[in-house]
Design a protein around this nucleic acid. Structure first.
Lengths: 219, 219
DNA sequence: TTTTATTTTTAGATTTGTCTAAAATTTATT
DNA sequence: AATAAATTTTAGACAAATCTAAAAATAAAA
C-alpha cells in the first residue's frame, strides 16, 4: 500500500511516541505533530481504516504490526539519509534533521537499498540511533546511561537522548560526540555532577542532566 | 518565494516546452503534464499572479525572467541527482528519471551545493544534458547531429534527444551511450541510414531516426 | 463572411488535510 | 455519586489541486 507524506509523518510520530508509553493518546500526538487534536482524530480514522492502527475511540491507539513495518521503513530512510548527509556531504550532525525529514519520503525501495550499500551498511546514524535493516530489524547495543557508569571505567558515547540545539551546543562545547571515549573520574554527591575525561583532553565537570542525556557502551 | 511540488512541476514543464516553441499553449502543457486543460488554466492563473508567467488569456504564455530562474533551479537539482544516482549508486541511466523527479523537490539549497561539490562539479548529466550552475548558467558543448556528421570523422556521443524507454533499449542494443566514440563510415542514400563504428566494435548500421536522435561533439 | 471546429476558460464539484467551535465522553475532585 | 475539568470527537468550513460539463473565444473551412 501507498502512503502520503502526511500519513507517513503521523505513522512515524506514533511509532516514536509508543516506544515510551506503549499506548498513545490524541493530545500527545497533536503536540508532537504541531497540529490540533481535531486534525489528529481525522487522521486516526483514516489510518485505522487502512489497518495501520488499533484505535478505540476515546481510549488511545497504537500501531498494528503492519503500521510498525511502515514506521520502521520511514525511520530507516531517515537515518540512512542522515548518515549520507554527515559522512558523504560533510554536514554537521545537528544540521541534518530537517533535510532528512524531506528525504525520508522519497518512495523508491531500490534507491534506499543502493544507498545503504553505498554507505557501507551502517548500523547507527550520526546521532547514535540504530538504523533498522530492510526487514525492520533494529541493531542493539549494550549501552548504559553515563550517569550510572562505574568509577574509573572508560566507555564510548553511543547515543544522545535529547538532541535539541541547546543540548548539541553544550556537547560541542565539551567536544563530546558519538564515538568519543569517556572515563569517569569522580561522582559528586552534592548535585550528581561528574568529573570526566573526554578522549585525551584535560578532565572537566558535567552536570547531572547532561550525564543522564548521554548513553555509552564498553568497547 | 516558495513553491509547491505541483507548481515546480508546472514551471519546469513550461520551461522545457518553451525551449522548442518560444510560446506555450494550454493544451500542449496539459498533454505534457498528463492532466486536463481546465486544471492547467487554474495553475496558469496562480503562477501568473506570482509573477512566474507572462500570460494573456487565450493567447498562450511563457516564463518571466524570475520563472526561468525557478525552472533552472529545479532542472539543476534534477540533473545533479541523476548524476548521483548513476555515478555513485550505480543505477542504469534509463532507470533514474522517476526517482530524480522526486528528489528535485527537496528544498535545501545547502544540500544541493554540497551535493554538487561531492560529485565533483559535473557539467553534464548521464543523458548528456547540461547541468545549470547555481546562477542558472548552462554549459554549452559544440555538438552536431550524428546524421549531419562528416564521412570518416570520429566524434563522441554527447546527448540523446528522445530518451523514451524504446529508444534507450535500442541504444543499449548497439552499445551506444554518452561518451561512446562513433566513426561514420557510410551514408546510404536510399533511406538515410548510416554505417558506423561504435568504439572498437565491428561496424553496424543504424536507421536515420536513430541517427537524428543522437548528438555528438568532436574531441 | 458566415458557419463549423478547435482551443481555452469558467462554474461548480471532489479529495486531502487542515481548522474552529461545539458536543460527547472520560477522568478527577469534592 | 454528583459535579467540574480535561480530553476527544463531531460538524461544518476552508485552501490546494484536481475534475467534468458547459460557455466563451479564437482559428479554420466552406
Amino acid at each position: 500500500m501507498n502512503f502520503s507524506v502526511s500519513e507517513e509523518n503521523y505513522i512515524k510520530c506514533i511509532y516514536h511516541l509508543q516506544q515510551d508509553t506503549g499506548m498513545v493518546n490524541t493530545n500527545a500526538l497533536a503536540a508532537e505533530m504541531q497540529t490540533k487534536a481535531a486534525s489528529v482524530t481525522d487522521m486516526l480514522k483514516k489510518l485505522s481504516s487502512k489497518k495501520i492502527l488499533q484505535y478505540e475511540k476515546y481510549h488511545g491507539f497504537k500501531l498494528t504490526d503492519n503500521g510498525r513495518k511502515v514506521a520502521l521503513s520511514v525511520v530507516r530512510k531517515h537515518r540512512l539519509w542522515e548518515y549520507f548527509l554527515v559522512e558523504k556531504l560533510g554536514f554537521e550532525w545537528d544540521k541534518v534533521h530537517d533535510i532528512a525529514e524531506e528525504l525520508e519520503h522519497i518512495s523508491s525501495n531500490e534507491l534506499i537499498e543502493r544507498l545503504q550499500q553505498f554507505l557501507g551498511n551502517p548500523s547507527f546514524d550520526p546521532h547514535g540511533d540504530p538504523i533498522p535493516d530492510s526487514n525492520g530489524k533494529i541493531p542493539k547495543l549494550n549501552q548504559v546511561n553515563l550517569a550510572t557508569l562505574q568509577l574509573n571505567k572508560t566507555a564510548v558515547v553511543s547515543s544522545v537522548a535529547n538532541q535539541s540545539p541547546q543540548m548539541l551546543e553544550m556537547l560541542k562545547h565539551y567536544s563530546i560526540r558519538i564515538g568519543s571515549s569517556i572515563k569517569l573520574l569522580k561522582r559528586f554527591e552534592f548535585d550528581g555532577s561528574l568529573e570526566i575525561k573526554v578522549g585525551k583532553q584535560a578532565s572537566c565537570i558535567i552536570s547531572e542532566p547532561i550525564a543522564k542525556n548521554l548513553f555509552v557502551h564498553y568497547e
